[in-house]
Computed example of a mutant assay.
Amino acid sequence: MLSRLVFVSASALKSSGPLGAGLVQASRSLHTSSQSLAPVPPLPEKGGKVRHGIIPEELFQLLYPKTGVTGPYMLGTGLLVYLLSKEIYVINHETLVVASIGAIAVYGIKKFGPSVAAFADKLNEEKVAKAQEVKDLAMSSLTQAIEDEKKEQWRVEGRSVLFDAKRNNVAMLLETNYRERIHMVTNEVKRRLDYQIALQHLHRRMEQEHMVSWVEKNVVGSITPQQEKESIAKCITDLKALAKATQAKAAV
């Protein structure tokens, strides 16, 4: 129980500020474990072993190599005898009060210590569970943030491909517009050339028709009635000769 109290007091001193941190660091120097400058080793979750409720086990281990197993007890007994013999500590009514209070404290610790320790452990477990829940929530949110960041990086990596595709699409649109305009210009030029050719053909046909009508008119105008009769007679004679030749060929 006292070890738990020492552990709780050390934790309180650690969170109390620079003075508490200094006291905790000074208390650590009493242990035989190796120390390092940075980072500071974490505090143990449970206190060290003690004997008789208050005496640290490290003190016994420190005196064993030089004094043996009975050394710590002889040191304590000798120190008590020295204090009493030199009257540094005088036994009076306050000693009885301290002994009574100590007995009551030992009885209370033995009687109620396990239940108080269990209650303290339960509170500690609840705090650890809440801290673990907060940690898990933070870890999940950070993991999701990492996944989102990776996805965004993947999208950024594909941005160059997307931009290339967009550039190709724009280039194809420009090429299509260019070819459409060339085709439109070609059709317009061809239509105008066809118009000019049709106009030339019309002029030529009109000239030919005019020339034919003029020649025909002049020829008709130049024929006299006598020539017309002679021509008709000549035609009749030619038709009769042609009919006889045809009948002769049919008879043969």
Rank of each mutant, 00 (worst) to 15 (best):
P39Q: 01
S222D: 06
D136K: 07
E133K: 13
G158A: 03
Y73M: 13
K110N: 08
A26K: 04
F7C: 11
S231V: 01
T32H: 07
V50I: 00
Q227T: 06
R28S: 05
G76P: 00
V40I: 11
E207Y: 04
T32D: 10
M172D: 09
V8K: 09
K135I: 03
S11D: 08
E94C: 01
V215E: 14
E125I: 14
T176H: 10
R159S: 10
P39G: 02
E157K: 14
P18M: 05
R179I: 12
A171I: 14
E57G: 02
N124W: 15
L59S: 05
S3I: 08
L19N: 01
T67C: 08
W214E: 14
T176I: 12
Y107M: 11
S16I: 06
Y82Q: 04
P42H: 10
Q247Y: 00
S100Q: 12
E175H: 02
W214S: 15
G20E: 02
G221S: 04
A250I: 03
E175Y: 02
P42M: 11
R51I: 03
A233S: 09
L83E: 11
V8P: 01
I197S: 11
I236N: 11
P42S: 08
E180F: 03
P114Y: 15
L123G: 03
A251S: 06
G221K: 01
N124L: 15
A171D: 12
K151Q: 14
K229P: 00
R159Q: 13
R204L: 11
R181T: 07
L19I: 14
A12C: 05
Q196D: 15
A248K: 00
Q227D: 05
E207I: 01
V170C: 03
F163Q: 15
R204H: 08
A12T: 08
R205I: 13
Q144D: 14
H183P: 00
I146L: 11
V170R: 11
A131M: 11
R192W: 04
T32L: 06
E57F: 06
L37P: 00
K130H: 09
S222L: 06
T237P: 04
F112G: 00
V69T: 09
N124I: 13
S27Y: 10
D238I: 02
